[in-house]
């Protein structure tokens, strides 16, 4: 972190058993490359070691460090303080999932929304023209979705419906239709067609905007609806 100045941060605090939540303000050193995560870790090391936050990979691949920065869902590890004009910059936990403490949300509530099958390894489409070597029938790679919960936090429908499956889970279902990996197509469609499934979406498009992995959740929900619509039309006598 090359330091050229300071920024003020307003951070959501919540310790269970201590009454309600509040915000604490900190002044942190900040340079052009300083990320929100750099700033939060600086607070942990130099101002308040009790600040709890999630992080792991530091490069937008694990999906643990999602927070709201000035109300916008971002991965703290790649969110630059310089891209936010707030003074102070407000950092809050993700919305629409329960808060464990400070900036930490309980992702059990995110994963409970998924269907039963949730494979994360897929065929790789990358590098056109590449031949897999002898003995490998195809190249594989991990799914784009990093299960960070940013889409669920950004979704205005999830704000009023705790039962809504939400963008990530519905996208995962659509991926199973594209590449079944052993899943039963009818089961996936039955799951996605439930009242709390794909039809609950109201095209706010905020999930695709929030997605840090370009997994296109909104587009996948719409594709899922097309499949569901086709199925229902086809089922008519």
């Amino acid at each position: 972190m090359s330091e050229t100045g300071t920024r003020r941060l307003r951070v959501h605090r919540f310790k269970r058993g201590d009454g309600g939540a509040h915000f604490d303000e900190f002044v942190v050193p900040a340079g052009p490359r300083t990320t929100v995560l750099d700033a939060l870790r600086w607070i942990q090391l130099h101002a308040d070691p009790s600040l709890a936050l999630r992080h792991s990979c530091m490069h937008a691949s694990c999906g643990t460090c999602g927070v709201q920065v000035d109300g916008q869902e971002e991965l703290a590890c790649v969110a630059r303080l310089g891209d936010h004009r707030g003074d102070p910059v407000t950092v809050e936990p993700l919305a629409n999932v329960p808060v464990l403490t400070d900036l930490v949300v309980d992702m059990a509530d995110f994963f409970r929304r998924f269907g039963d099958r949730h494979p994360v390894l897929r065929a790789s489409e990358a590098v056109a023209g590449a031949q897999p070597p002898d003995g490998l029938d195809r190249f594989v790679r991990l799914e784009d979705c990093i299960e960070c919960g940013l889409c669920l936090s950004a979704c205005p429908v999830a704000a009023t419906s705790a039962r809504y499956a939400g963008p990530a889970a519905l996208s995962a279902a659509q991926r199973l239709l594209e590449e079944p990996r052993g899943a039963d197509r009818d089961d996936v469609l039955a799951w996605a067609g439930r009242p709390e499934g794909a039809w609950r979406c109201h095209v706010g498009m905020e999930c695709t905007r929030a997605c840090p992995a370009d997994a296109l959740p909104a587009e996948r929900i719409m594709a899922l609806r097309r499949e569901l619509g086709g199925r229902e039309a086809g089922a008519r006598p």
Binding site: Q68, G71, E73, P98, V99, V105, A159, V203, G204, R209
Partner: peptide, 28 residues
């Protein structure tokens, strides 16, 4: 744990909090 929503306590206000919203969310 308590569930936080945009716009404070939640519910309908979650639709209306303009912070971090793009034009898609505002049209919603």
């Amino acid at each position: 744990g308590p569930v936080r929503h945009k716009g404070g306590a939640g519910g309908v206000r979650g639709w209306l909090d303009p912070r971090g919203r793009t034009i898609g969310g505002r049209s919603f």
